[in-house]
Simulated scan of single mutants.
Amino acid sequence: MIKIADGDTMTVLSENQQIRVRLHGIDCPEKKQDFGTKAKLFSSQLAFGKTVTVQVLNKDRYGRAIGLVILPDGKILNRELLKAGLAWHYRKFDKSADFATLELYAKRSRVGIWSMKNAIAPWEFRKSKDSRRLILQRK
C-alpha cells in the first residue's frame, strides 16, 4: 500500500503500476465530516506500507478498482472499518448480510460514527455539498 487518500480509497503498487482502489460495500465519512480523519488514520495504521492483497470485484465510473483489501494477517480492511464504526454499509452497492451485521454490531456498541447522535451518511453529505455548490454557482 503506497497511498491512503481517505478511509475507503487507496493506491496500491502492483507490478510497478499504481492502482487506485475503492473499498467495496462500505462508505467512510468524508475528510471534512466527523470521523473522516479517524477513518483515514485507521486504514493507514492497518494497511499503509504493508503488502496487501486486493480482490477486485468491479471497476467504478472513475476507473478505480472496487474490491476487498486483505491485510497481511488475513483480515479484510472493509470489514474492520465497519466493525470499528468508521464506515457505513453501502447497501446501494452491496447486499451482503455479513456487512449489514457488522454495521449493526457497531451501531449497537455505539462505536465510531455510531457514538454520535445524528451521524450523516457520506452520500448525504456529498449531496448537500453538491447542492450548496450549485446554489453558489447560480448567484
Rank of each mutant, 00 (worst) to 15 (best):
M1I: 13
K3E: 14
I4N: 02
I4M: 09
D6W: 08
G7W: 00
T9H: 00
M10E: 12
M10Y: 07
V12E: 07
L13I: 10
L13Q: 09
S14D: 04
S14I: 03
E15H: 10
N16H: 02
N16A: 01
Q17P: 08
R20Q: 10
R20E: 12
R22Y: 07
R22M: 04
L23K: 05
G25K: 01
I26K: 01
C28N: 02
P29E: 08
E30D: 01
E30A: 05
K31I: 11
K31E: 14
Q33R: 04
D34I: 10
D34E: 12
D34M: 12
D34W: 09
D34S: 13
F35R: 11
F35G: 02
F35W: 09
F35M: 11
G36Y: 08
A39C: 01
K40C: 11
K40P: 09
K40S: 14
L41Q: 15
L41R: 15
F42T: 06
S43Q: 08
S44T: 15
S44V: 02
Q45M: 12
L46A: 11
L46P: 09
L46D: 05
A47Y: 01
G49S: 05
K50I: 10
K50C: 10
K50E: 13
V54N: 01
V54Y: 05
V54A: 04
Q55D: 15
V56I: 15
L57W: 00
L57H: 11
N58F: 02
N58K: 07
K59P: 10
K59V: 15
G63S: 02
A65F: 11
A65I: 03
G67D: 06
G67Q: 04
G67K: 05
V69C: 09
I70S: 03
I70M: 07
I70Q: 11
L71T: 00
L71G: 03
L71F: 06
L71E: 00
P72L: 09
D73V: 06
G74V: 03
I76N: 10
I76P: 01
L77V: 02
L77N: 02
L77S: 03
R79Q: 15
E80K: 06
L81N: 04
A84D: 06
A87W: 05
A87N: 00
W88R: 00
Y90N: 00
Y90D: 12
Y90W: 05
Y90F: 11
R91I: 12
K92Y: 10
D94M: 04
K95P: 05
A97K: 15
A97R: 15
D98I: 15
T101S: 15
L102M: 13
L102F: 05
A106H: 03
R110L: 10
V111H: 00
V111D: 06
V111K: 05
G112T: 06
W114N: 01
W114Y: 10
W114R: 05
S115I: 09
K117M: 13
N118P: 08
N118S: 13
N118G: 08
A119L: 06
I120S: 06
A121F: 08
A121L: 07
P122S: 04
W123Y: 12
E124V: 11
E124M: 10
E124R: 11
E124Q: 14
F125A: 08
R126W: 07
R126V: 01
R126M: 09
K127V: 13
S128N: 12
K129Q: 14
K129P: 10
K129V: 15
D130G: 13
R132K: 15
R133P: 11
R133C: 03
L134R: 15
L134I: 14
I135A: 14
L136M: 14
L136T: 14
L136F: 13
Q137V: 12
R138K: 15
